Structure formats: C-alpha cells, structure tokens
Amino acid sequence: MSKTIDTATFGGGCFWCIDAAFRRVEGVTHVSSGYTGGETDNPTYQQICTGLTGHAEVVNIEFDRSQISYERLLAMFFTLHDATQLNRQGNDIGTQYRSVVYYHNDEQHTQTMDYITKLQSQIREKIVTEVSPATTYYPAEQYHQDYYEQNPEQGYCSILIAPKLQRFEKDFKLYLKN
C-alpha cells in the first residue's frame, strides 16, 4: 500500500448508505461493505442479521491522505447516521447496526475521540458511538458491494438512502468526485 493510502472503518447502521456516500468522495480509492468486531469467522449476511455474531455492518474505506484527511472522513461519517442511537439506526435494530469507529492506529484513535468530544459539546443527546481497535474485516457478499448504485429503485434505497445522499452531496460538494 502507498505511504499516503490509509484505511478507515465505520459502522453507522445499514452499510449500503455509508458505502454509497463514500464512493463519491475525492481521495477515496476503494470502498468495501463488510463485517467486523465480532466472534464468528467468515460470517454471512444471514448470520449477521441475527445479531448473535457480535459483528457490525461496516464500510472499509481506503483513502489517500494527500487528498482527504481522516478528520474530514469522520465529519462525513457523523453526518450520515445518528450517533445517539444505541444499537440501531431508524428501523434497523440490533447490535449489527451500532454506531462504531474501528481505528487502525493511535492517530485515528486520538482524532476520533477528539472529534466525538467536539461533536458532543454541540448536541444535548449522548453520543453512543463505540470506538474500538480494528479487528479482522470480512467483506460482505458481492451483492452488497455498491448496492445503492445497483439498486437505486429498490424501496430502501429510494426512500431512505437517496435523501441522505442528496444532503451529503450538498454538504460536501467540494470533496466529491466530478
């Protein structure tokens, strides 16, 4: 991996939305939906959905630090989900949908904690985002990769993801690919 390429791993509910947003970001070189943080080796989507594996649905993001900072990715991530909801995002309920940042080094850990502290000072509700060291990442099944682009008319995508992406694109237009 290049000296300027780094990895970020975020979980904020269903991975389809987080995946779709970060694929639009300039400096993001690869996005993969998957699972991490649990006890089961090579889990399947069906196993994850039970909430019994301990894994979260996450997006693994490779990014070029010379083009976009980890702190900017954090800012984007925290606009894409509600960090005050414990083990859920809207109607998606269970530990697999928890708000979580898996950090890959001490610098990411410090930046994440600093960002959460700053964000917490701006809102009344308690931020419940888990911050944990990155563990083994398991890519999700192929049909989950870039799901939104493959299925924009699917109900979940058109009703829940499309409006989030419109807000995301408006808020971060300076950081998006042309």
Rank of each mutant, 00 (worst) to 15 (best):
T53G: 07
L174W: 04
Q96F: 10
N60A: 09
Q122V: 03
T95M: 02
Q47S: 07
P133I: 12
R72M: 14
T95H: 04
K170L: 11
L119W: 03
N178A: 08
G27P: 07
H109R: 10
E130L: 08
I18D: 12
I161S: 00
G94L: 10
F63S: 12
T129G: 05
Y175D: 14
N91T: 14
E125C: 09
C17N: 15
H81P: 11
Q142A: 13
H55V: 11
A162W: 02
V31A: 02
H109P: 10
I159N: 13
Q108E: 07
P163E: 00
Y147H: 02
P133M: 14
R88M: 10
E57G: 04
S32Q: 05
N91F: 11
Y147P: 04
Q96N: 15
F78V: 03
D41V: 13
A20T: 05
V131K: 10
M1P: 13
S33Y: 00
N178T: 10
T79G: 08
F15V: 03
A75W: 01
Q120Y: 00
V31S: 00
G54N: 02
Q154N: 14
S69Q: 05
A56K: 04
T129A: 12
K170G: 11
G13P: 11
Q67R: 14
I127S: 15
H104K: 07
R23K: 10
T110P: 06
T44Q: 01
T36Y: 06
Y97M: 12
I161L: 01
S33H: 00
T40P: 08
E39D: 15
G54P: 04
T95I: 06
N87W: 06
L160M: 06
Q96L: 15
I18C: 08
E57H: 01
K164Y: 01
L86V: 15
T79H: 13
K126S: 09
F10M: 04
